[in-house]
Design a protein around this nucleic acid. Sequence first.
RNA 1: GCACCCAUAGCUCAAUUGGAUAGAGCGGCAGCCUACGAAGCUGUAGGUUGGGGGUUCGAGUCCCCCUGGGUGCACCA
Length: 546
Amino acid sequence: MKRYLTEIIGNAMKALPYEHSLPLVFEKPKNEQHGDLTTNIAMLLAKLVKKNPRLVAQEIIEKAHIDPRAIVAVDIAGPGFINFKFADTFFTNQVSEILRNSESYGKSSLGGGKKTQVEFVSANPTGPLSVGHGRQAAIGDTISNLLQWTGYNVTREYYYNNAGRQMRVLAESTYARYRQLFEPDDPFPEDGYQGDYIRDIAKSVREKESDRLLSIPKEDALTFCKEYAEERLFLSIKNVLARMGVVHDVFYNEDSLYSTGKINEVIEEFRKLGLVYENDGALWLKATALGLEQDRVIVKSTGEPTYRLPDIAYHREKFRRGFDLIVDVFGADHIATIPDVLAGIKALGYDPEKVKVVIHQFVTLLRDGEQVKMSKRLANFVTLDELIDEVGSDAVRFFFLMRSISSHLEFDLNLAKEQSEKNPVYYLQYAHARIASILRFAESQGSFSLENADFQLLKEESEIALVKLLLDFPETVASAAQSFEPHRLTTYLREVAEGFHRFYHDHRVVVPDAELSKARLGLCLASKTVITNGCRILGISAPEKM
RNA sequence: GCACCCAUAGCUCAAUUGGAUAGAGCGGCAGCCUACGAAGCUGUAGGUUGGGGGUUCGAGUCCCCCUGGGUGCACCA
């Protein structure tokens, strides 16, 4: 309908003697009393030609050829908005579209098949995933889903490093715990990982190897421990992600950037560009020449690169692999690394505009109204696994997606576990189960077909309101995808559930009038379609019964 | 000290990216089950959008200052 209005109003404006290049935009008013679509064009134009905006609006309307069957009211309101109200049948007629598109209702081709990579989680295998990683997993996976629904060709990627200092600490920690199984007084490294999971891994090493590691050179034992711990941890990471329905397509190892010479390649190019210099035995990137605050070390005096260098090399590979849109999902603690990477990429001749960095804030857990204290180094943090054990995967995903990415997320464990209307996940799923139940009931009263249903029979206020809401779905998916903000979808789906409950409360679905029954059953099925599709994008289940 | 994020109803959060009278949920109060699921619905109270300036037809949204919280600011990742 936007297209229809754009044409009509566009033509009307051409008929007026004003020169301009203003964008003609129609949007949905916040307040539905203001109609179905509104435009501010008269106000923009009035400013340009220095006339009263309401007068300009009047001129535009007079020139417009409006079909009264489709548009039942045109008003000038407030400071000069032009409001359009469409006929109810304009909306209700589209219910059959929803039913016809069914499981692809909401999909679009906005992305045009653009090759896209979404990188998320990317935790090194040094321990179990935390609650924070969980938020990132939910966000990254849902953004991927949203992009797929809007026609992007998406690769989900996990980037990790199993070679650096962290892994050395992991090896030493595991080895120390292993030794302690034989000699309880053996020392534990000062900066070692304290968590119990290290003890579990150590025990498993003993089961497998008995005391063999005590009699071989320490270096060999450490290598064994590192590889064994890494394997175990990665397995558990993949398992917990799978519990949330998250599966990465590619696991990209930082090490490969070294072995294939990609790291040195970047250094050489920076050298050619005159962007590096040596100082105190270290190699510095002239970040100030790229418009940044201060120069940064990219190769330490020990010869080891800092994280910046592989990050730049990795992002360059993303471009080389042909991705046109690169989405990086990071926690707020990684925010500082981004400008360096983007500047480096730009210096190498790639367009940093193609990189979209999604930064999410932290999660705090709330139990019985009290914040759950967590510390990474000490053993008292709640793992993602434990969280899923406690509240279930659906609640975990939904809660992580409920808030905007840039705001801190308070995760109320009691609420997430509660099986009542207070819990927004259940509210949504209940609506779905309720619809399923109605459809079962209707079926039990005799089979029906929606083939020739006449949706113009839907005339009641809560019917029309629900239809309009359902028709918003494709646009909601698109805007959530393009703004990389999954919470728009959770907010929207809650509204759909609410709209449905309201309709259900106001009107019986199965009524003596067979034609009206069919129309209402169609509305039920359309609502179910939207909720199902929405839940698929969010990665949560839509139960037939609960 | 510098940079980024946040501050909206008692609590947790929205607000179509600059639009009209700032909206939901929870909690409070008052109601609704004699046919399809009450895990539901209806009504009601609750606000100087942290404070102060500015930009303009119009600001919760953009710019500057201040206050208070979070996160970074390594030859750690």
